[in-house]
């Protein structure tokens, strides 16, 4: 418990918790529109912003926010136009972003390797109180936007054409989502690093999807999982002295595996329990067995049946 007697550990914990809560709240929309990896791409590009910041001796975080926001808007405009050429355009941007970042950090000559590692893989323990303020303020803004605009963002992510015919400002909402993605990536860069940002946006959502039934339930569960992974990650990393970002991500993936195995085991268990009921019923004529099936609590074929109890609604 002596771990948190140091201010820098407290700051690391606060930063990690805030990001653990915010990243999945945004990530769910990216997962929903099957753009799970976009955070990764934006992270690549943000490195160029870091490089520019170091070179010009301006705040690397601020420059990263600007550069990645511009890039995220460009990606959104490419996505809007269609697919085929967009794919290549995205590849050019992503690799150009990370290569440009590495070159610019080198040019800035600021003890580059240590610096580069800090941004690529995170260094929350070196976060200054000012950095932490920026992270918390931006995270609260992103989180508030995701929660307040949930119905609209759900609508455009779920069925964009329908949202258009509903008269929603689809383009503005898409661009808003792009910019908030960039902001989230950049503030998470201090915690888990640019190369691992996407994990914190996607893995908790993927985990929540294993047992939840609705969108809001998935969102809240994913935020909870992100919070738990981030909090326990800070503690574990401090205890066994490992890199914080990697520890958080490994824990998040660990939770995913445990939940996945648990969900599979539950299904198997329910199915096995359903078998005796089925054999007992088989004594009756066949068509009678089929009749009560929909009302029986555990129909053997209904894969999602057992999930009823798992969702906090």
């Amino acid at each position: 418990m002596s771990l948190f007697q140091y201010d820098f550990m407290i700051r690391a914990l606060v930063g990690a918790l805030v990001i653990g809560l915010t990243a999945p709240a945004l990530g769910i929309y990216l997962v929903q529109r099957r753009m799970s990896l976009i955070g990764d791409g934006v992270g690549h590009i943000a490195l160029t912003g870091v490089g520019i910041g170091l070179l010009l001796d301006r705040s690397p975080v601020l420059m990263a926010v600007l550069v990645s926001a511009v890039a995220a808007v460009a990606i959104e405009l490419i996505r809007e136009r269609g697919r085929t050429p967009g794919d290549v355009a995205l590849a050019l941007m992503f690799y150009g972003g990370i290569a440009g970042g590495v070159m610019l950090v080198g040019l800035s000559g600021s003890r580059s390797n240590a610096n580069l590692m800090a941004y690529l893989f995170g260094s929350l323990t070196t976060t200054s109180p000012q950095d932490l303020t920026v992270i918390v303020v931006l995270a609260v803004l992103v989180l508030g936007t995701m929660l307040v605009l949930r119905p609209a963002l759900f609508a455009i992510s779920h069925d964009e054409e329908y949202a258009r015919v509903s008269g929603l400002p689809v383009r503005a909402l898409n661009l808003l989502l792009a910019v908030t993605t960039a902001v989230t990536v950049t503030i998470s860069m201090r915690a888990v690093g640019l190369l691992l940002v996407s994990a914190l946006m996607v893995v908790p959502v993927a985990t929540a999807q294993l047992f939840s039934r609705g969108f809001l339930a998935t969102m809240l569960a994913a935020m909870g999982i992100g919070l738990v992974a981030a909090g326990s990650g800070v503690w574990l990393a401090g205890t066994i002295d490992t890199a914080l970002g990697a520890t958080i991500v490994i824990l998040a993936i660990g939770i995913f595996l445990v939940v996945a195995v648990g969900a599979a085991a539950r299904r198997a268990l329910v199915r096995r329990r359903a078998v005796p009921a089925g054999t007992a019923a088989a004594v009756e004529p066949c068509d009678v067995v089929l009749e009560p099936a929909p009302t029986s609590p555990t129909p053997a074929l209904d894969l999602d049946g057992p999930d009823h109890a798992a969702v906090p609604r």
């Binding site: 997962v31 929903q32 529109r33 069925d159 008269g167 929603l168 609705g214 969108f215 998935t218």
Partner: peptide
């Protein structure tokens, strides 16, 4: 789209946004 689950009520509710 959507690998994320959504309930019937949630989908129907988006019809109110207009």
């Amino acid at each position: 789209g959507s690998g994320v689950p959504a309930t019937v009520a949630e989908v129907v509710a988006s019809g109110r946004l207009a």
